[in-house]
Amino acid sequence: MNIGAHYNYWVAIFLMMTGFYVVITHGNLIKKLIGLNLFTTSVFILYISLAKVKGGTAPIIAPGIEVYSNPLPHVLILTAIVVGVATTAVGLALVLLIYDRYGTIEEDEIRLKDDSL
């Protein structure tokens, strides 16, 4: 079996699982959000890998070029990146508010304070 044929997908899965691991094991809220970013980016890589055509170039029409990569996933991911950062910003704003209220951004300490109420 040719390793190069599926390497992109496997690394995307590896990155996705690393992000997943960061989200579920680490209690620090900022680190959780960064883990979530790893997760999203892995999806971007998967989509862009699917769009690649061997021997193709960027989908900008130019004379003398016959093969282009698939432009549709590019469009989907382009907007997803900007939407991703906007939603991350909402997450970070919530982290700031949690810090105001609890004085910490560690999940277990927040839970302790909740229980002691």
Binding site: I30, L33, I34, N37, T41, F44, I48, S49, A51, K52, V53, G56, T57, A58, P59, I60, Y68, S69, P73, H74, I77, L78, I81, V82, G84, V85, T88, A89, L92, V95, L96
Partner: peptide
Amino acid sequence: SMDAVDVAFTEAAVGTGIATVLLLSTI
């Protein structure tokens, strides 16, 4: 390298620029 120049453009501006600055101001 995978021909997605528009996406790369956005990722470079958003991921390395804006997201980093926002994360830094949060910490």
